[in-house]
Amino acid sequence: MTVAGQRLDKALADAVPDLSRARIQALIADGAVRLNDAVVTNGSAKSVVGAYEITVPPVASAIPLPQAIPLTVLYEDADLIVIDKPAGMAAHPAPGTADGTLVNALLHHCGDSLSGIGGVARPGIVHRLDKDTSGVMVAAKSDRAHAGLSKLFAAHDIERTYIALTRGAPSPERGRIETQIGRSTSDRKKMAVLKSGGRNAITDYVVQARYGVPAKAGAAPLAARVACTLHTGRTHQIRVHMASKGSPILGDAVYGSGSAAAPVKAALAEAGLTRQALHAAVLGFVHPVTGEALRFETAPPSDMQRLETLLAAL
């Protein structure tokens, strides 16, 4: 029973001491609080006299469970494993993605050999790709490999090249983008190029192909294939940098402001691409244990290849 007239989230937290006010707010946001069989949607509204029903979901395990998810393994030894991650697979569990991640797959594939330095939620993970970005990733199976790989990534002593299909093409056709990247001041869920603050971010790019080039001399193409080489590893770095050049990655719902030309939209629909057209194509590094120089390269997956074929026909 709640006290009428109080702010609802506070009143419910007072009435149910086992649930914090923040937890109550989250449950309201998830539609788990009802009054007279009607879902309550506003935790800041005043409470009314009545019986509120709170449905608390079962507690999920903080430790990821092994799952038999197929992996494309490019290389594996006692210390590390290199895989070609498919689009749609998150690197590790996070809010909204409890399982089906690379960590779940690695726990099944590697068993107890996966390095634990990354913590119980992220064993073996030394770097990440966005959930909807495909491509080459390395994970540590031993603690010594984990420590060594982490040092390589921290020192940016890693070769990393991505293939992006973009709206229009960045100008000039090759160059270096060096900015500060941090949380957007207008949307904390996004990253942005900042005038001050943030962290230094460096991307070299080369336009490899131009698609839908107008007959008018000097006119910008409708789309392009761009190779982007990372010298730093900031969150969403390539997506932010390409957008800052006025050529956001096709299919990017977060940073792809504006609208692609009608023929490009049609190509996207026909290709069935529902993610950002970004693929981590190359990963090269010195093996942290053996000292062997390793380099892996994979082609973009079928959705990007199909889109590129359609774009080339414009």
Rank of each mutant, 00 (worst) to 15 (best):
residue 71 L to V: 12
residue 37 D to C: 06
residue 20 S to C: 02
residue 26 A to T: 02
residue 27 L to C: 03
residue 49 V to S: 15
residue 60 A to L: 15
residue 85 K to M: 07
residue 27 L to N: 05
residue 37 D to N: 07
residue 71 L to N: 15
residue 47 S to C: 11
residue 43 G to I: 07
residue 41 T to Y: 04
residue 68 A to P: 05
residue 58 P to I: 13
residue 46 K to A: 15
residue 17 P to L: 07
residue 90 A to D: 06
residue 41 T to F: 09
residue 12 L to M: 07
residue 79 D to F: 11
residue 70 P to A: 13
residue 47 S to K: 04
residue 26 A to F: 07
residue 30 D to R: 03
residue 48 V to L: 13
residue 18 D to N: 01
residue 50 G to E: 01
residue 79 D to K: 04
residue 85 K to N: 04
residue 41 T to V: 14
residue 79 D to N: 09
residue 38 A to P: 00
residue 20 S to H: 06
residue 34 R to D: 05
residue 65 L to I: 10
residue 75 Y to N: 07
residue 79 D to E: 10
residue 68 A to R: 08
residue 57 P to C: 06
residue 58 P to G: 11
residue 62 A to S: 09
residue 87 A to R: 10
residue 38 A to L: 11
residue 79 D to C: 08
residue 77 D to Q: 06
residue 23 R to Q: 10
residue 81 I to N: 01
residue 60 A to P: 04
residue 82 V to L: 07
residue 61 S to E: 02
residue 49 V to F: 14
residue 57 P to A: 07
residue 87 A to P: 00
residue 33 V to D: 04
residue 11 A to M: 04
residue 77 D to T: 10
residue 84 D to K: 05
residue 40 V to Y: 02
residue 46 K to T: 15
residue 40 V to S: 03
residue 18 D to G: 05
residue 25 Q to K: 11
residue 70 P to T: 10
residue 79 D to V: 08
residue 88 G to T: 06
residue 68 A to Y: 08
residue 38 A to Y: 00
residue 52 Y to Q: 00
residue 44 S to C: 10
residue 82 V to Q: 06
residue 17 P to C: 10
residue 87 A to V: 03
residue 87 A to K: 05
residue 36 N to M: 03
residue 17 P to R: 02
residue 40 V to N: 01
residue 62 A to K: 13
residue 35 L to E: 01
residue 29 A to H: 06
residue 17 P to F: 02
residue 40 V to P: 05
residue 76 E to Q: 14
residue 60 A to D: 12
residue 16 V to Y: 00
residue 25 Q to H: 01
residue 19 L to R: 03
residue 46 K to P: 11
residue 45 A to C: 02
residue 90 A to Q: 01
residue 13 A to F: 00
residue 52 Y to N: 04
residue 34 R to L: 10
residue 88 G to C: 12
residue 84 D to V: 06
residue 22 A to Y: 00
residue 15 A to D: 05
residue 26 A to W: 03
residue 29 A to F: 00
